[in-house]
Computed example of a mutant assay.
Amino acid sequence: MATPPQPVRFALGTFSDGGEPRFPGLVVEDRVLDLGTALAWRPASTTAVLDRWDEVLPVLRDLAGDRNGDWRPLAGLRVHAPVEPRQVVQSGANYRRHVIDLVVAHRAGDSAETEEQARERAAALMDRRARDDQPYVFTGLPSAITGPYDDVVLPAWTTQPDWELELVAVIGRPAHRVPVDRALEHVAGYTIANDLTARDHVFRPDMKEIGTDWFRAKNAPGFTPLGPFVVPAEFVPDPMDLRLTLRLNGVVMQDESTKDMIFDVARIVSYASQTARLLPGDVVLTGSPAGNGIHHGRLLRAGDVMESTITGLGAQRTTCVGEERR
């Protein structure tokens, strides 16, 4: 009996010839098909494609296998953030080793606890948290999103800009109060984010009782490089077995598996949906592993180049530019 042919692997992105207008594209290897003309209803954006995900997915499979369309070379196009989400959901403190490192690093100066004892205590806390607690989730601004190869402007008002490589789930079906065991049915695909943080603005110095100020710390323009592409979930067999690696000027700073997550993708999507109605094209960031700049004692500065990869999802490359050079 003949083996059925394997589906052609494809991804979605947003492209232009260098300027406007942008168009949604189907990516197969090193070529791009303009979905704004290839689809009968002429979608203007990738978000519009995701709005009709169940209807369009079989069509995209067929188009990916057809080499006779009006394909264009990827190298000749500018790659933008693959989606323009209506909502950005972010998750923090979600990698076990990362949180354990933070607990150890923030021991009181007069603590009699050894590092090994602190790690054992933190590990027990993480086990309890994974079993009994809920994800830590907050919202970001779509205006912070930029393309995967765009420069990142470091605002003059921060002295501690930091990197945070994250796996991103992209919503393909509206999700509201979905159970954990159905949550991944609402995920169209996955992409990469570098969720930059101004560490010196995480806490309000003028009123410590308020706690964290994620609005100030995370939402400067360009603080969320996204992409390059959305890879459909069918080509990501296990989102909990992907490798995340971030290099700063060629040196590996983050290198971890999504297996180290405290709350998996399904639990985060389900939890966020208990409050909000997630919409097609929305992005759910799932937290960053150990190896942030604050851990290494080396924060971002003008001229730094960050290269970020996640298994099967491509790579980002962004250069940091000081605001005074604009």
Rank of each mutant, 00 (worst) to 15 (best):
Q6G: 10
Q6F: 04
Q6K: 14
F10D: 00
T14H: 07
S16I: 09
P21A: 05
R22E: 02
R22W: 07
P24E: 11
E29K: 06
W41P: 04
A44T: 14
V49E: 08
L50G: 06
D51P: 01
W53M: 08
V59G: 00
V59A: 06
R61K: 15
D62V: 03
D62A: 11
G65E: 04
R67M: 01
N68H: 09
D70V: 00
R78Q: 09
R78G: 03
H80I: 10
V89F: 12
G92N: 09
R97Q: 13
R97G: 01
R97I: 07
H98E: 04
A105F: 05
H106E: 13
E116M: 06
R119F: 03
L125E: 15
L125H: 12
A130P: 02
V137Y: 06
F138T: 12
G140V: 05
L141S: 15
I145A: 02
G147S: 07
P148M: 10
P148D: 12
V152Y: 02
W157M: 04
W157D: 14
P161Y: 12
E164I: 03
V170F: 05
G172A: 00
A175I: 01
V180E: 14
V180G: 04
L184Q: 13
T191C: 12
A193F: 03
T197Y: 00
R199Y: 01
V202S: 09
V202N: 08
R204H: 07
P205E: 13
P205N: 06
K208N: 09
E209M: 10
G211V: 09
F215A: 05
R216A: 13
R216S: 13
A217K: 09
P228D: 04
P232I: 07
A233P: 01
M240E: 15
R243V: 07
R243H: 13
R247W: 09
N249D: 15
G250V: 08
V252T: 15
V252E: 13
T258W: 06
D260W: 05
D260S: 11
M261V: 04
V265P: 01
V265L: 14
I268D: 10
V269N: 10
V269Q: 02
S270A: 15
T275E: 03
L278F: 04
G281P: 01
G281N: 03
G291F: 05
H295Y: 08
H296C: 06
G297D: 01
L300E: 00
L300I: 05
G303R: 13
G303F: 03
V305H: 12
I310R: 10
Q316H: 06
T318P: 00
C320I: 11
R325F: 12
R326Y: 03
